[in-house]
Structures are given as structure tokens and as C-alpha cells.
Computed example of a mutant assay.
Amino acid sequence: MQRQNKARAPRLAIAAVMTLLAAGAYAQDSAKARPAKGKVDAVSSADMKHLIEGSFSSKGPATVEGVLNQDGMQQACSQYPDRTKVPAKVAKKIEAAELKQVRYPADKNWLGDWKEGEKTAQNGRGMQFSDQVGGANGGNCYACHQMTKAEISFGNIGPSLYQYGKLRGNSEEVVRYTWGKIWDSSAYAACSNMPRFGHKGILTEAQIRDVMALLLDPASPVNQ
């Protein structure tokens, strides 16, 4: 049984939380400074940008630009705090746009080494200010999913992936879907909480192959 402590998913979670807290404090201070108008004015996007730029500095892989510069999917999903309530029409548009950006392996080599995939799944480090630029990131898969029977420390935000390949098989459709889901989760579930591992360059293509093997290789502990 693995007993490794897992860090938070590599998505600048600490910076995001600090940003929200700072935004709340900013809105309160601004409200005190202005005459009462019946309701507190909303914090403008320009004010928020100025706040972030003045509060944080880029260090290592954690950059101010990474917080401020949202792509189209992030901008669309930011309109829906409850991601289970994204309108169907909007969700369909997001998924179609993201699916077009999935890059499949040109050599059709889908599976790597499941043993290396297990290491990636267990590793929760990466993309924090203390990490080396260009260093290997982890997938932190166990933070959200059950994957192997031996591991009893896992999250339940995402569905269980235990016996993933054994239950689904390894047809071309399953293999392509699995790759696409790891590469860009919002290609199949708009505004998903799962990181877009390939799209955002969190995991390398070799690491994704290894995680694919962990999920689909019959010899993998996932499928025992």
C-alpha cells in the first residue's frame, strides 16, 4: 500500500484561494471608503487585475500571467461558479472547441509503462513557485480517484477508476476517449474540475502514455 503524502493538484490552488480572499477584502475596504449607495459596487476586472499584479510576483513555474491570462474555456466557465449547472448549449460549444485541440500521439503509440504511470498518479508535486522550471510534474490522480485496490488513501471527487480497462476493454474508441480525457477533460465534460493535463502542459506525452498504461494494461494493478 502506498502511503505517500499527496500535495494539491498542480493548478496554483494556493494562489487562487489567496486571490479570492484578497478580492473579498478589497471589496469590503472599498465599500467602507465610499458613501453608501444601497449596495456595494462589484469589483471591476481592471481593479482585480491591478490587485493581483500588486499582490503576487512570478517565481518558478508559478507566474502572474498564469493567473491572469484565461483562455476561452476558462473565461466561459468562470461565468458558472456551480459547474454542474452550465447550460447545455454552452457546454456543447465548449466541449466541441476543446475536442478540436486534443493532440493524439502521431505514432499511434498509446501505452507506456504502467509502473511509471503509477508513480505519476501518486505524485502530487508540480507547478508551484518552489519547483524547478521544466521539472517533471505529477498527476496527483489519487487525490480524486480510486485506482488500485491496494491504495486506501484516495479522494472521491472523481469516479472510481479501479478496473478501468477490465470493465471497458481496449477498443480504439475507448483508447482515444481515455487519451482525450487525460489530455483535456473539458473536451468531454465542460468546465470539468479535472486538470487539462496535456492541453496545459502539466504532463508530458510520455507521462500520459504511462498513465494510459496504468488504466488499460491488463497487467496493471488497476485491472486486477
Rank of each mutant, 00 (worst) to 15 (best):
146 Q>K: 15
199 H>G: 04
10 P>Q: 02
82 D>T: 09
139 G>L: 02
146 Q>E: 15
108 K>P: 03
113 D>G: 05
161 L>I: 08
54 G>V: 07
61 P>D: 02
73 M>Y: 09
114 W>L: 05
97 A>D: 14
90 V>Y: 02
165 G>M: 03
157 I>T: 13
3 R>Y: 09
50 H>P: 04
7 A>P: 09
185 S>P: 01
88 A>I: 08
106 A>V: 07
63 T>I: 03
121 A>N: 05
222 V>L: 05
11 R>F: 08
187 A>I: 06
61 P>H: 02
63 T>F: 02
156 N>F: 13
223 N>L: 07
201 G>H: 02
49 K>S: 11
125 R>L: 12
139 G>R: 00
175 V>I: 15
54 G>Q: 10
114 W>K: 02
169 G>H: 04
94 I>C: 01
112 G>I: 00
58 S>P: 06
176 R>A: 12
94 I>Y: 00
136 A>W: 03
161 L>Y: 03
190 A>P: 00
39 K>S: 14
127 M>I: 14
74 Q>C: 07
193 N>D: 14
26 Y>P: 01
201 G>P: 00
51 L>M: 15
15 A>F: 07
195 P>A: 04
62 A>N: 06
212 M>A: 02
60 G>D: 02
218 P>N: 06
214 L>S: 00
70 Q>V: 07
6 K>Y: 09
96 A>I: 11
208 I>P: 00
71 D>Q: 05
158 G>T: 08
132 Q>S: 15
221 P>S: 08
112 G>H: 00
211 V>C: 03
91 A>I: 03
144 C>A: 11
